[in-house]
Design a protein around this nucleic acid. Structure first.
Length: 402
RNA sequence: GGUGAGUUACUCAAGCGGCCAAAGAGGGCAGACUGUAAAUCUGCUGGUUUUUACCUUCGAAGGUUCGAAUCCUUCACUCACCA
């Protein structure tokens, strides 16, 4: 497998927030080219039930990129550290998951992650494997390698310390243990989010302290913005695209991103080369290509990755049919209801309106359609029969009134 | 431990006895316009077929009052300053 180092480095650097020890990465690539010797790329994940969205896949795709250039991915599931809880978050102490649950979650990780990663070049590892063995003595030894003052350099510790918010001792252990993972795994490179900087550097420090003969390079990826273009992608903000979502949903969500955000997504999510993306940009700039078409390509690429090419094409056709020809989607939810039924109630029963009050408002605004006909009578009763109900442009339901 | 300030709808934030389902902003939903969006303009944004009405909601529980988000008491939590 041959590749151009400069080109490879450009792709590796693409979209990254920060790289520490870039020369090391270049050396590893060069060495691989010359001797065929692989190197390891570590990334850690929570042991909780994975429900990945595109924000997570930014990092995973970067891992996949390294696999093209001789990297062996160490996909670390933090089943031990998981019970401490990363202090970056809300500082809740979590329960240790039992073996069975961890295994189950790991399996589900594999299903989602191997759509991007090459399983042949991936080792799935659990940090309880070595951390369980570390024991009290080993743990104490680990703590002697670091002092409190340096620990407090970490931004959020610093803030919490100064504002006298509680910091549990166990939280100090988190970075140490995560760093120790790098010692145990002898990782050459570690990937993580920008919020993980302190922990990632800890791995580097500890590798030196423990004389592993390695000092991992660190590559940090930014947090991907969600569909609103402002906040980070997250499920709770409902601005995410989940990797297990339906093709039609994915397509609609990608298309609903703004033009500006689309380019950000290209940079971080597309496997197209930098040059290809530049071409697309200039074609849009000169008007020879419509931004919508570019967005459609991206949507299809993402759907192909998690579903199939066929699904992508279907999703596109479906989207055009609904939005261009304003026809009705091909498969909509069906509800059997008893009539006669007040229209406002029917919308609630068909789950396309949260309350009858909301239904009334929507009807007043002309947002409600029955069989494609706009209605204005909020007292309307549905008699026996089949109806296609619609609220706004997106919410459809078929009801059978009996 | 002491003193002071605060807790209002999805979020921030006004209100300080009746005109309060509660200003304003953001977010969200919808309509127009589009390329599907974004931007812009407009409307809506607790619930209930009594819809110029009724019911529930202003940290929790009691109380005063014809009437409380607003006053009083207790409790819980958050924050600031002091120790």
């Amino acid at each position: 497998m041959l590749f151009d180092i400069k080109e490879a480095m450009r792709e590796i650097k693409r979209g990254t927030a920060e790289i520490i020890d870039e020369e090391r990465i270049e050396k590893l690539l060069k060495n691989f080219l010359e001797t065929g010797e692989n190197y390891t790329v570590k990334a850690g994940f929570d042991p909780t039930a994975p429900d990945l969205h595109l924000g997570h896949t930014v990092l995973i795709q970067k891992l996949a990129l390294f696999q093209q250039y001789g990297g062996i991915v160490q996909f670390l599931i933090g089943d031990f550290t998981g019970m401490i809880g990363d202090p970056t978050g809300k500082n809740e102490t979590r329960k240790k998951l039992d073996r069975e649950t961890v295994e189950k979650n790991a399996q589900s990780y594999k299903e989602q992650v191997f759509k991007i990663l090459d399983p042949k070049k991936t080792e799935v590892v659990f940090n309880s494997t070595w951390l369980d063995k570390l024991g009290a003595a080993g743990l104490v030894e680990l703590t002697t390698t670091f002092n409190v003052a340096r620990m407090l350099e970490r931004d959020d510790f610093d803030k919490r310390y100064k504002s006298q918010t509680a910091i549990s001792i166990s939280e100090f252990l988190y970075p140490l243990l995560q760093g120790y993972d790098s010692v145990a795994l002898k990782s050459d490179i570690e990937l993580g989010g920008t919020d993980q900087k302190f922990n990632l550097l800890m791995g580097r420090t500890l590798q030196r302290t423990y004389n592993t003969g390695k000092e991992q390079a660190v590559l940090m990826m930014p947090l991907l913005e969600g569909l609103d273009g402002v906040n980070k992608m997250s499920k709770s903000l409902n601005n995410y695209i989940g990797v297990t979502e339906e093709p039609n949903t994915m397509f609609g969500k990608v298309l609903s991103a703004s033009d500006e955000l689309m380019w950000r997504y290209y940079d971080l999510l597309s496997t197209r080369s930098i040059a290809e993306i530049e071409d697309l940009k200039s074609e849009v700039a000169t008007g020879s290509m419509h931004p919508k078409a570019v967005k459609e390509h991206l949507a299809c690429e993402i759907i192909e990755r998690f579903h199939s090419q066929e699904d992508a094409l279907k999703a596109k056709e479906e989207f055009d049919r609904v939005h261009k020809q304003s026809e009705i989607p091909s498969d909509i939810k069906e509800y059997a209801l008893e009539g006669p039924l007040w229209i406002a109630k029917a919308l609630v029963d068909a789950k396309i309106s949260p309350s009858t009050s909301q239904s009334r408002r929507d009807i007043k605004q002309g947002a409600v359609k029955i069989n494609q006909e706009k209605i204005s009578d909020e007292q309307l009763q549905l008699q026996t029969g089949e109806y296609i109900l619609q609220v706004g442009k997106r919410k459809f339901a078929k009801v059978k009134v009996s």
